[in-house]
Amino acid sequence: MSARFAPGAWRYVLPPLLLGLPVLLIAAPVGLALVALAGFLAWFFRDPERTPAGEGVVSPADGRVTVLREEGDRVRVGVFMSPFDVHVNRAPVSGEVTRLDHRGAAHKPAFSKDSVHNERVEFTVGDVDGALIAGWFARRISPYVSRGDEVDRGDRIGHIAFGSRADVVLPSGYDLGDVRVQKGEKVRAGRSILARPE
């Protein structure tokens, strides 16, 4: 099976690779460092296949659960992506994309409370709301879907370059007892089950 990469990966991978190969001939350590950087970037933009591990709302992102709280009559679950996680985001449920809004301008650390003002893409799929939130280093959120698109649970919906967070606001009727993860738990986009009603 051939490797799959997030759209736009080669924009980051090719410059250090094309520069590093000829530099190997005149300054081997520098050339090796550039080729290694290209290899890391290719690995960073990897996009593996995923299948949900069962019924329920799946994680929109790879990473660790850092937000788990009630907001009025709904529950928010947030997943922080480190630079070592896959950064392709996936639909938490099946349904129509009825909202897709790009807003915010700040670039605070994605795990901080100040990240509420960060650049983000807020979305609604079916009866689930969510947000792809850029971190302090991330400067590009690339949605793969448009308003009106139909997606299946676990489908790819976007990509955030270089560190970020993805939140899901569970449907009304879910409570903390329906959440199947804990703070600090490692989850995988499109595979790990965040919540499932009893």
Rank of each mutant, 00 (worst) to 15 (best):
D62E: 06
K108R: 15
R50C: 05
H102I: 12
F40R: 10
V35I: 14
P52D: 06
P48H: 01
K108D: 15
A36N: 04
G54Y: 07
P22Q: 05
R76S: 12
R90N: 05
A28T: 15
P92T: 01
R90G: 08
D62T: 05
G31V: 07
V35H: 09
D73S: 13
S115M: 00
L34F: 11
D47C: 03
D114A: 15
S59Y: 01
V75G: 03
L41S: 08
V116W: 05
F40I: 14
G31L: 10
A61Y: 00
F45Y: 11
K108M: 14
T98I: 06
P60D: 07
A28S: 12
G20Y: 05
P109G: 09
F111L: 13
G31S: 06
A33M: 11
G54R: 03
F45C: 09
V93N: 01
S94W: 03
R99A: 14
P60C: 01
T51W: 02
L18Q: 02
L21F: 10
V93A: 04
P92W: 00
V67P: 01
I26M: 13
M81E: 07
L37V: 14
E71D: 12
P92Q: 03
A110K: 00
L19N: 10
D114L: 09
L18T: 06
H117T: 14
T51D: 10
V116H: 10
V79K: 00
L21V: 14
T98K: 04
P83I: 12
P60K: 00
R64F: 10
D101M: 08
H107N: 12
R50K: 11
R103A: 15
F84Y: 13
H87C: 02
V30I: 14
A28C: 08
V86H: 06
L41V: 14
L21I: 15
L100M: 08
R64S: 12
R120D: 06
T98A: 06
G78N: 04
R99Y: 05
M81W: 03
L32S: 11
G104W: 02
V65L: 00
R46N: 09
R99P: 06
I26K: 02
P22A: 09
A36D: 10
H102E: 15
S59Q: 01
G63T: 02
E71A: 11
A42I: 07
N118V: 02
T51E: 13
T66E: 13
D73T: 11
A38W: 04
P109Y: 00
A42N: 04
F45P: 06
V77A: 03
L24H: 04
R103Q: 13
A91W: 02
S112V: 00
A105I: 11
P52R: 00
E71V: 13
R74W: 09
P83Y: 03
S59E: 09
L68T: 08
V23R: 02
V75F: 02
K113G: 13
F40D: 10
P60Y: 00
L37H: 01
V77P: 10
F84W: 14
L21C: 10
V116Y: 10
E70T: 13
F44Q: 08
H102T: 14
P92I: 04
L100C: 03
G63V: 03
P92M: 05
L34Q: 05
R74V: 12
G95L: 09
S112N: 01
D101L: 12
